[in-house]
């Protein structure tokens, strides 16, 4: 029980990071972006490349930190990858979504993003192959915190969780204390009015893609550390990410964080009530229940 709770929070923190960017895009640009999860896998693979590059250039960086499977080169690689993934998101928007945005309904955007997801996913597999990759083949053992009830915790897990929380906290301060945060709020509430007040909408859109892509890259790497880096990551994660956004309420960044944790917890607690074969359905059934009580999600605005 406690074990499931802890594991749920870990998976949840990864989903939360991915969901923040998705909810921002869904709210600002008014469409469900199916290619967002591919940014996670793009970020994970770009990190993989930088990590291997850095390791071969500066072998000293391949040293692991403390009891983690994390290396210094991986940390630098993540930072580089955040930038690359964010810029890729801007490029995709410029190539595809910007052109459809003005002339058609949101569903055309949704299915254009579905097409983009197919292209990105399979380009990745064409370049990197179909087999999953690992950042480190070493297995780090869990620490037995207690025997009864059984509680096992991996240091990597704690690190990932802390990092995710730190990133969310930083993001929270940016939103609530900076001009950019206010501008973002203004734009999401009323794009036209905010433009009158001197907010540059085009710039804001680019920033949103940059941040969303950056956070997605981190989430992708954390997922890869916890699982494997595979071209199917996007496909495997896209629905959980949407579930997190929806259950939190579209547009609510705090909702996305809570939603991520909720979905993570739901899938880890699922086995307590149902056989493991039914696990994929459980998070969605919980969402169904929450939505039947709160139709616009936990933190969504009612229109």
């Amino acid at each position: 029980m406690i074990q499931n709770l802890f594991d749920g929070i870990l998976v949840g923190s990864i989903l939360s990071l991915g969901a923040i960017g998705l909810t921002m895009v869904m709210h600002m640009l008014r469409f469900a972006n199916f290619s967002h999860a591919e940014l996670l896998s793009l970020g994970a693979y770009v990190t993989f490349v930088f990590d291997k590059l850095l390791e071969s250039m500066v072998p000293a960086l391949s040293q692991t930190i403390g009891g983690l499977s994390l290396t210094f080169s991986l940390i630098f690689a993540i930072i580089l990858s955040m930038g690359v993934t964010g810029v890729s998101a801007i490029i995709i928007d410029w190539l595809v979504f910007r052109r459809i945005r003005d002339s058609a309904g949101p569903l055309s955007m949704v299915f254009a993003s579905f097409g983009v997801a197919l292209i990105v996913r399979n380009l990745i597999s064409l370049i990197f192959g179909l087999k999953p990759k690992l950042y480190s083949e070493e297995i780090t053992f869990a620490v037995r915190v207690s025997l009864d009830p059984l509680i096992l915790i991996k240091l990597d897990q704690v690190f990932v969780l802390c990092m995710a929380l730190v990133i969310m906290l930083i993001f929270h301060f940016v939103l609530s204390r900076t001009t950019f945060g206010y501008a973002l709020k203004a734009v999401s509430e009323n794009p036209t009015l905010s433009q009158i007040n001197g907010v540059r909408l085009a710039l804001m859109i680019r920033l949103i893609w940059l941040i969303g892509g950056g956070l997605a890259a981190v989430a992708g790497v954390f997922y890869g550390l916890n699982n494997q880096v595979s071209f199917l990551m996007g496909k495997d994660l896209v629905l959980s990410l949407f579930a997190a956004v929806i259950v939190g309420g579209i547009g609510s960044i705090y909702g996305a964080v809570v939603g991520g944790f909720l979905v993570g917890l739901a899938s880890n607690m699922a086995l307590l009530i149902l056989p493991s074969g039914y696990k994929p359905a459980v998070p969605f059934l919980i969402i169904l229940i929450i939505l039947s009580i709160r139709p616009t999600g936990l933190f969504g605005e009612k229109k």
């Binding site: 949407f242 039947s292 139709p295 229109k303």
Partner: peptide
């Protein structure tokens, strides 16, 4: 249960139903 939901909320709720149906068929 779901038709009072709007847009994306309806989509993800019904999507969950599809996952559940596939899961039921599988198990």
């Amino acid at each position: 249960i779901t038709t009072h939901l709007r847009h994306d909320y309806l989509a993800i709720a019904t999507f969950g139903v599809a996952i559940a149906v596939e899961n039921f068929a599988r198990n």
